[in-house]
Nucleic acid binder design. Structure first.
Length: 425
RNA sequence: GUGGCCGUAGCUCAAUGGUAGAGCUCCAGGUUGUGGUCCUGGCUGUUGCGGGUUCGAGUCCCGUCGGUCACCCCA
């Protein structure tokens, strides 16, 4: 039996790596005062129909009828759920809200690498504040997440743009607002499509615009509205990560202002995260129950993990986290079965103090026990045998051995635990 | 949804149309209380599945399922 197409099993090693990602996500989000929320994976289909009035989107939804004949959908993204929750609970919270979520989302598409039908996503949203300071907080958080996993300005870039700039562009060329969506779609593709196709699409949309004019406008990258945001990012020391790029407009219809995408600079340009400002969506999705400006972003786990693994310094950082969180810290070697009971008592005591401890469940040769200790990636072995009531401890990395009393052992470990506490809370 | 490539042991892969194999992993040993090496032995298959061609198919053909890459799409 295999999992369904586009779904994955997570073996312990996969879980450990995912734990690394989600731990860094949580840590960074909390540093910015974001609080975690969650909602159901299964939602009413109505929630998504409202936003996208039917069409193709629905065919990419995991949708079905439940036993109560309700039309239901596995959430394809978090934002509608967030908007729904905000709509009915926003009066209970002081504004602005800083909320984040880590959860599985689903889409019924043909699976390929980094694009499965079930994926884990981080969403961070700042609601109820329309100033550029809010944009800067959110983008600052995004960058700090990259920093936390060892990615620097040589590894990732945030391409920043503003839809208001394009709105102004349309006005300056006497084009109606209705053309906005079409033009943005063309801009979105301008890098990826051959010029002839872009020209064709542009001609169908407007007679007064040329591809050259668009390209020139993008090249000039004049975006005065972004100045306050850029200033805030400079104050955070994050300007190195930012590149103003007006060709970034994002595919989604609901963005109203600042939009941004994070890309990998090495190993081909891959989108690692994306987001922007959506000032009307909450109002729309909550049926007017709430009305507040919002800015946020989403980031998937698989592409990020792939990328981290391909960057040596980031891979090293991941490896040291995994080593520090190995399944076993202390392995008790029972060299003489006579002392099994003493060993069990010692193990229990160590476990009560929070150490990850293993010992052989049945009689094993000492050489086998050391072998197992290493396989479990323990850093310390404690041999219990003839020297009792003394213990022989062996540092498995340095192979150094010493004999100490149990009391001394606990004192030593207590110091160790304290000094490590700052490393991985 | 469209097209290309690929499906052989748990993993990585061999096998001119002619008896399905290797390495790694795993398990058990190498007699006294010390772990990445080494030596010995052992387990593992409906060759993804279903048809067809052939004396004979892992190999050729068709279908199907799954994987992968590129489009499409991206909430």
């Amino acid at each position: 039996m295999q999992p369904l197409p586009g779904f994955r099993d997570f073996l312990p090693d996969d879980c450990a790596q995912r734990d690394y990602i989600t731990t860094q996500w949580r840590r960074s989000a909390k540093c910015y005062g974001f609080v975690e929320f969650d909602g159901p994976a299964l939602e009413s289909a109505e929630l998504y129909e409202k936003k996208n009035s039917g069409g193709e989107i629905l065919s990419q939804l995991y949708s079905f009828r439940d036993r109560g004949e309700r039309s239901v959908v596995l959430r394809p993204e978090m934002t509608p759920t967030l908007a729904r929750i905000i709509g009915s609970h926003h009066r209970s919270f002081l504004k602005p809200l800083r909320w984040f979520n880590i959860g599985h989302c689903y889409r019924y598409e043909k699976p390929q690498r980094g694009r499965l039908r079930e994926f884990l996503q981080l969403n961070c949203d700042l609601l109820g504040e329309s100033s550029p300071a809010a944009d800067a907080e959110v983008i600052g958080l995004l960058i700090d997440i990259f920093k936390s996993v060892g990615l620097g300005p040589r590894d990732v870039v945030i391409r920043l743009s503003d839809r208001l700039v394009w709105q102004q562009f349309l006005q300056d060329h006497d084009l109606p607002d209705e053309k906005m969506r079409e033009i943005l779609h063309i801009v979105d593709k301008i890098e990826r499509e051959p010029q002839s196709k872009t020209e064709e699409k542009l001609a169908a949309c407007s007679s007064s615009l040329s591809v050259k004019m668009l390209q020139q406008f993008i090249k000039e990258a004049k975006a005065p509205s972004l100045a306050p945001l850029l200033q805030e990012l400079s104050a955070r020391g994050l300007r190195d990560y930012i590149q103003v790029d007006l060709s970034i407009v994002r595919g989604l219809a609901y963005y109203t202002g600042v939009v941004f995408e994070a890309f990998s600079l090495q190993g081909g340009l891959r989108a690692l995260a994306g987001g922007g400002r959506y000032d009307h969506l909450i109002h729309h999705l909550s049926d007017g129950a709430a009305n507040m400006p919002a800015v946020g972003f989403g980031m998937g786990d698989t592409v990020l993990l792939d990328f981290i693994t391909s960057i040596p310094s980031a891979a090293e950082k991941k490896a040291s986290y995994l080593a520090a969180n190995a399944p076993c810290q202390i392995y008790l070697v029972i060299a003489d079965e006579t002392y099994r009971e003493e060993a069990i008592m010692l193990a229990s005591q160590l476990r009560r103090e929070g150490w990850r401890v293993l010992f052989p469940l049945s009689t094993e040769r000492v050489s086998k026990q050391f072998s197992n200790a290493q396989a479990a990636r323990a850093t310390l072995a404690i041999v219990i045998g003839a020297e009792w009531p003394l213990l022989k401890i062996k540092h498995l990395n340095t192979r150094e051995e010493e004999e100490i009393t149990p009391e001394h052992l606990f004192k030593k470990l207590a110091g160790e635990l304290q000094s490590r506490q700052g490393t991985f809370p």
